[in-house]
Amino acid sequence: MFPIKTFVSERRAANLLEQVRWRDGVYFPRCRGESVIRYGSYRVFQRYLCKDCDRTFNDQTGTIFEHSSVALRKWFLAVYTYIRFNTSLRQLDVDIDVSYKTIYRRVQRFLRALDAPRLQLEGPIEIDEFYVKAGLKGRERDQPSRSRGL
């Protein structure tokens, strides 16, 4: 489909992720702390230090691209071609030279992230439990029970 060389470099992909991710300001995804300072770099990504919990993070922390050894520019290309051109996972496997299993897992993670509702719950929350019957367990509705072979 598209050769990777015509796509943006890894640095430009990292800058794009940074612009989109922190358009409302930088914060630590785990503790939501906003007292954050720049703290060097990690590969091509800006690294930050949260002053509230004294932990470091980068632009990929808390995103679907976190903990991926595949280049960010390849994931951008995969997501774009998957959504825009309805490209199959097998074709993406060939185009970006990543295994089918890796492509499948990352695309599923991306689709789950799109479907995830953003709930802002306040006050006490109650959760009640209930039992869902698994089925007839050997008894058919209009017939005698089948043998279990015990």
Rank of each mutant, 00 (worst) to 15 (best):
V8P: 07
E10K: 08
R11L: 09
R11S: 08
A13N: 02
A14C: 04
N15E: 11
N15W: 07
L16I: 06
L17W: 10
L17T: 06
E18Q: 10
V20D: 08
R21H: 05
W22A: 00
R23A: 10
V26T: 09
Y27Q: 06
F28T: 00
R30Y: 12
R32M: 12
V36L: 06
V36R: 09
V36D: 02
I37Q: 07
R38N: 01
Y39R: 03
G40C: 13
S41D: 13
Y42P: 00
R43Y: 11
R43S: 11
V44K: 11
Y48S: 10
C50T: 11
D54V: 04
R55S: 06
R55C: 01
T56Q: 14
T56M: 07
T56W: 08
F57V: 09
T61W: 05
I64E: 11
F65M: 13
H67D: 07
S68D: 09
S68L: 02
V70A: 14
V70K: 10
A71N: 06
L72R: 08
R73L: 12
L77K: 00
L77I: 05
T81I: 09
R84Q: 12
F85A: 13
L89N: 15
L89M: 15
L92C: 02
L92D: 11
I96Y: 03
D97I: 06
V98G: 04
S99V: 07
V107I: 15
V107W: 07
V107Y: 09
Q108D: 10
Q108F: 03
R109K: 15
F110S: 01
L111A: 05
L114E: 09
D115Y: 03
R118G: 02
L119I: 11
Q120T: 10
L121I: 13
G123Y: 04
G123E: 14
P124M: 06
P124D: 15
I125S: 05
E126R: 10
E129I: 05
K133E: 15
A134L: 15
L136C: 11
R139S: 09
R139E: 08
R141F: 10
D142P: 04
